[in-house]
């Protein structure tokens, strides 16, 4: 496998994991614009545990799960105040959370502050790919369980979900915490993949992009974030390659602007995301209710 391809596949794997981290809360109708906060916590905790203590740091097989767990615990503690907010307030609260985390870590001299933090252990594609597949399978399984159905009902209508005896608060807390777990996992893997982390990797634009992966992919089915992350990773690369082959600077430099245009058009023509429940049913040949009537 060429170096370019494996580098791209690694990015794809990482993007898929963080997309699922934001997807889980989004599947219960909560928009989380704070992906960077989780990624920073996971990345720095994982990197610190692995690379500090004068070479006596923990092995990757320990440091990555511990980083994910610690992030999940923080997400759990955070979910109670944050889930008091709704809608646009929640978008702002999670956004503020990510900014606070970035600001604090930027000033922590223990982890290098603004200069960044080098991480020793290297996680290559052989480690990333199985973890990514496990994450996809886990989320896919989770949404097929009773818990997943409950998530879907909370997303569609909270009041009705309450009427059917679902503990809405618990579902939302659980989804947010699981999102934190995956976000921490992403951060730790990212640090070990690139062996270097800095807060600037997870800036405002990162938060925005991740939320867009999920919303463009679609929050109705567990395949949405997969397609969204794939789309966001592959299309800019294709556009870059196209620009290079056509020798067109317009396409090569303007690919992100083109990408923004795609986003806006998507929202006009397919506001529920690329993958929706109806699309899957149509593809699998099952008749939907709409198709019958």
């Amino acid at each position: 496998m060429s170096g370019y391809l494996s580098a791209q596949l690694s990015i794809l794997c990482l993007n898929i994991i963080i997309a699922y981290a934001i997807f889980l809360p989004a599947a219960t109708g909560q928009l989380n614009l704070g992906a960077g906060g989780f990624a920073i916590i996971g990345g720095y905790v994982g990197g610190y545990l692995n690379s500090s203590f004068d070479g006596l740091g923990w092995a990757m097989s320990v440091s990555i799960p511990v980083a994910a767990l610690i992030t999940a615990i923080i997400a759990f503690a955070l979910s109670f105040p944050i889930l008091r907010t709704r809608g646009v307030y929640m978008v702002l609260a999670t956004f503020a959370f990510a900014e606070v985390v970035a600001g604090i870590v930027l000033n922590l001299e223990v982890v290098g502050g603004a200069a960044g933090f080098p991480v020793d252990g290297h996680a290559d594609l052989k480690i990333l790919a199985p973890i990514t597949i496990a994450v996809i399978v886990f989320c896919w399984f989770l949404l097929s369980t009773r818990f997943g159905l409950a998530m879907r009902s909370v997303h569609d209508d909270e009041n009705v979900a309450t009427l059917f005896g679902i503990n809405v608060r618990w579902i939302r807390v659980a989804a947010f915490t699981l999102g934190g777990l995956l976000g921490g996992l992403y951060g730790a893997l990212y640090g070990h993949q690139y062996n270097y982390i800095e807060v600037q990797n997870w800036n405002v634009l990162f938060n925005i992009y991740v939320l867009l992966y999920v919303l463009l992919g679609g929050t109705q089915t567990p395949f949405g974030p997969l397609v969204g992350a794939l789309f966001f990773t592959v299309v800019p690369e294709l556009l870059r390659a196209l620009g290079e082959s056509l020798n067109s600077e317009l396409i090569a430099d303007g690919r992100f602007a083109l990408f923004g245009i795609l986003i806006v058009l998507m929202m006009v023509f397919r506001p529920e995301g690329i993958v929706t429940r109806t699309l899957l049913e149509r593809l699998s040949g099952r008749k939907t209710q709409e198709a019958v009537t």
């Binding site: 997303h155 634009l205 463009l216 929050t219 992100f256 795609l262 806006v264 506001p271 529920e272």
Partner: peptide, 24 residues
């Protein structure tokens, strides 16, 4: 469709425009 994240459409479009203008 009476969907909770449906309300996110303008938010997402405005994020898209943020990306467009910045990169132009």
């Amino acid at each position: 469709y009476g969907d909770a994240t449906e309300h996110a459409i303008p938010l997402v479009s405005s994020l898209g425009f943020l990306i467009i203008f910045e990169h132009i």
